[in-house]
Design a protein around this nucleic acid. Structure first.
Lengths: 219, 219
DNA sequence: GACCGCCTCCACCGTCCGGTGGAGGGCTCA
DNA sequence: TGAGCCCTCCACCGGACGGTGGAGGCGGTC
């Protein structure tokens, strides 16, 4: 198969040279371009259409995150690996939300860097261990959990039909609207809603909505 | 340095044998115990005090997730790698919340498996690429955001009093209860609620609750 | 001082909601 | 073949909700 075409973006010429040397050592990788800031990066990527972009964050003119956003907006097919010295929570989440496929620290061993480029080129993600840890921490977040778990367990006790009705209720539909949307009689809907009140131990539909939101609510 | 002591937990003897062979091939790894279900795992881990536990999920008697929870509750120092064939969203999150240090699919190449055990022994996390992807997806979630922003801006347009009422409404209080809790007449509450409907462009209080939840909702 | 927005409250009225007590059919499982 | 659960639907009723059109006071601003 053809080699993986890589563009290196970093404001430090030494870093670029280092990366070029590391990646050049792998026969299946080819550095097809360099850029010293985000602005240049946009041009080079547009010209070279690389498979992978190694993108520093801290750069003059346009930083790596902004450049990543721009590239994504332009519908680039290049996978972007953000490469930086620091890994603040903010940055990691932002970068991933902007569509970065990888997030590596600059202390990544050369061999791992090569592996990362290959993997990302194949569409797999690649994160440094500490970044993975942050992600886990962000996802785990035991907060709220009490209420959320309670909501989940209570909702789990509902029958399928009741759960459908509960969701409809929490969407703000009236009984009549729910009946229409589920192809039921209004009386049936009322029965289900009544069961919801009993099972969830609430007295009105807003509280049902609370449960549904708590249970679903993101994390 | 001393070798990494590993316990293998899987109900399939063939799988255990395979893992033993793979890990045994690495001079710095040593399989010091096996278990065929979660219950056994607790015993073996207590006796061997391994550095790393490779834990299958689907097992009779006690599954891997329950065993992981138990081990953590007992304050084990062993790092646990969950090893499974499937990676449903639920499982991944649950496992990580229970304190698993790794989550690998059973199709992980032997070499990667060895690397994973070493890394986890050092306290680093190790996830299969597809698991990492799920995590990123869970964290990214660009959805909601639009709705959330909209909710925030609309709520910002409310007067202070209206916002108080909106919150009360979203807590599931009736107009009468809101009146009592804010020391107002019921008529006043009704007026405010009416304004809420107009300003938020909704027709009932459940939808008001949605806005409040969307705007406040955690992250 | 006149205007304007916010807060407070009132009356009226139709609709929807929530509570109660049913009934019949389908399903599974003992 | 019952018993038990779920789903479907009915009737009745009081109270809560939602819509409309007000009124008065209070604090700003032009």
């Amino acid at each position: 198969m053809a080699g993986v075409r890589v563009v290196v973006v970093d404001d430090d010429a030494l870093v670029r040279a280092g990366l070029r040397m590391i990646l050049g050592g792998a026969p299946d990788l080819e550095v097809v371009g360099e850029a010293a800031d985000g602005q240049e990066a946009l041009d080079v990527v547009a010209r070279q259409l690389p498979d992978v972009v190694l993108m520093d964050i801290r750069m003059p003119r346009m930083d790596g995150l902004a450049a990543t956003r721009r590239l994504r907006e332009r519908g680039t097919t290049a996978r972007i690996i953000v490469l930086t010295t620091f890994d603040t929570d903010e940055m990691v989440l932002t970068a991933l939300q902007l569509g970065a496929a990888g997030f590596l620290l600059k202390d990544t061993p050369p061999a791992d860097l090569v592996v990362a480029v290959r993997r990302v080129a194949l569409g797999e993600p690649m994160l440094s261990p500490s970044v993975t840890s942050q992600l886990i921490a962000a996802v785990t977040r035991p907060a709220e959990d009490g209420r959320r778990r309670k909501a989940r367990t209570l909702l789990a006790r509902l029958t399928d039909r009741e759960r459908e009705v509960a969701v409809a209720v929490s969407d703000g539909l009236t009984n009549t609207e729910i009946a229409r949307s589920l192809h039921l009689g209004v009386a049936t809907v009322k029965t289900h809603v009544g069961s919801l009140f009993t099972k969830l131990e609430v007295t009105n539909r807003v509280q049902v909505a609370r449960y549904v939101h708590d249970a679903a609510d993101d994390r």
